[in-house]
C-alpha cells in the first residue's frame, strides 16, 4: 500500500520511494525508508495531507503520497 491509502490518525513505516525530485526533497526532510509517518488530517477539500514526521508537521499532496510505499503500523 502507499501513504495515500492511510486514513487520518493512522501511521505507516516507509518502505520505498519512486525516485524523482519530489521524493528527493522528502527524504532530505527526514522521510526515509524505515521512518514512521502519521497522517494527522486532510485539508478541507480532501487534499493535501498533513503528516507528522520526526516530530514536525509536513504537508504533501496525495499524488506525492502515492509515490511512497509503506507498511501500515498497527495501533
Amino acid at each position: 500500500m502507499t501513504l495515500q491509502d492511510l486514513r487520518p490518525g493512522e501511521s505507516g513505516r516507509i518502505l520505498e520511494f519512486e525516485p524523482n525530485a519530489v521524493t528527493d526533497r522528502l527524504m532530505e526532510m527526514g522521510m526515509l525508508p524505515g521512518s514512521v509517518v502519521q497522517v494527522v488530517r486532510l485539508a478541507p477539500l480532501g487534499d493535501p495531507m498533513d503528516l507528522k514526521v520526526r516530530g514536525y508537521h509536513l504537508s504533501i499532496r496525495k499524488a506525492e503520497a502515492a509515490q511512497i510505499r509503506i507498511s501500515k503500523c498497527e495501533a
Binding site: 524523482n20 525530485a21 519530489v22 526533497r25 522528502l26 526532510m29 493535501p48 498533513d50 514536525y56 508537521h57 509536513l58 504537508s59 504533501i60 499532496r61 499524488a63 506525492e64
Partner: peptide, 12 residues
C-alpha cells in the same frame, strides 16, 4: 519542467 508539487512544512 517538473509538474507542480506541494511539499510544505506546517510550522507550529
Amino acid at each position: 519542467g517538473p509538474e507542480s508539487y506541494f511539499v510544505m512544512e506546517l510550522p507550529p
